[in-house]
Design a protein around this nucleic acid. Structure first.
Lengths: 141, 141
DNA sequence: TCGTTTTCGGATGCGCTTATCTTATTCAAA
DNA sequence: TTTGAATAAGATAAGCGCATCCGAAAACGA
């Protein structure tokens, strides 16, 4: 469903939303806590930084932090940046040009499901997920 | 969402449901009409044959045909056979051991969506899709 | 100014799915 | 019985996402 890259990015973002917003969090520390390869996580967070979801800072005491409040970041934004395929628009049979007025046989069944997934992703904020992490002790690794 | 293998398998099965059930359909002919590599399609249909969704016949006038009526084959069955990942049960954050009583932060949001996808896939038969193909002239390639 | 810490970004290697190729086997018709 | 048509199955290559590595640049502290 989601690529590894996206999954790692989501976990890292949830972790950041659950950390102190006023300081930069070191990528190496995060990679240890989330059990994600440091170099790989660096690559992923770079992409999120380039797309203005994160602010980075180099040097001692450096790291990354969220560019806006966790309430204002949806997991939809993260997925769109990290996922290479257009998962919220593509045809489930992979047929080029499949649209509402030129649909594949599965189009009518798939479209509402796809839309519902998109709505849920848009409606789910990092703050919401971080809160669950706090209250219910849910896991990221 | 679905692998290429599964997508090709689905298209071929819909095509078969839309063909004469009383004769074997040649894989080479099908590969031409669906614009799928012959050798690759062969591999996919072999797997469907091994899992008793198709019956094959070698030699002249050979090919494959559906093992039961198109009404009795759901796309769920096809996906389960061809998809390597357990897409109807796996955690969307890829966290091992994520379950109802040990959920990841996204678990509660994802579970109902996943279930709905599964229900839709179980409820959609090849006959239903083939009918659309007939009546509305929907495309497979 | 120098050394240390940390992110940045390009280059490289690995592994799995995808795709192709080749040989064997089966069956029907002439 | 021979020949050709067709699937079966294993071996092999290509492509891409995954993962790693390394040097460069930036920032801080001494």
């Amino acid at each position: 469903m989601l690529s590894n890259t996206t999954v790692y990015g989501l976990r890292a973002m949830i972790h950041l939303a659950n950390s102190d917003q006023d300081q930069y969090i070191s990528i190496s520390k995060m990679s240890e806590e989330l059990k994600i390869s440091f170099h790989f996580l660096t690559k992923i967070l770079q992409k999120l930084t380039q797309n203005n979801l994160l602010v980075s800072y180099r040097g001692p005491k450096g790291g990354v932090r969220l560019s806006k409040k966790p309430e204002d970041i949806s997991i939809y934004e993260i997925v769109i940046i990290l996922e290479t395929r257009p998962m919220f628009t593509e045809c489930i049979l992979g047929i080029p040009g499949c649209e509402d007025d030129a649909p594949c046989p599965l189009h009518e069944e798939w479209r509402p499901l796809r839309l519902q997934i998109e709505r849920q992703f848009r409606a789910t904020s990092l703050a919401h997920l971080a809160e669950k992490l706090e209250i219910f002790g849910k896991r990221l690794a």
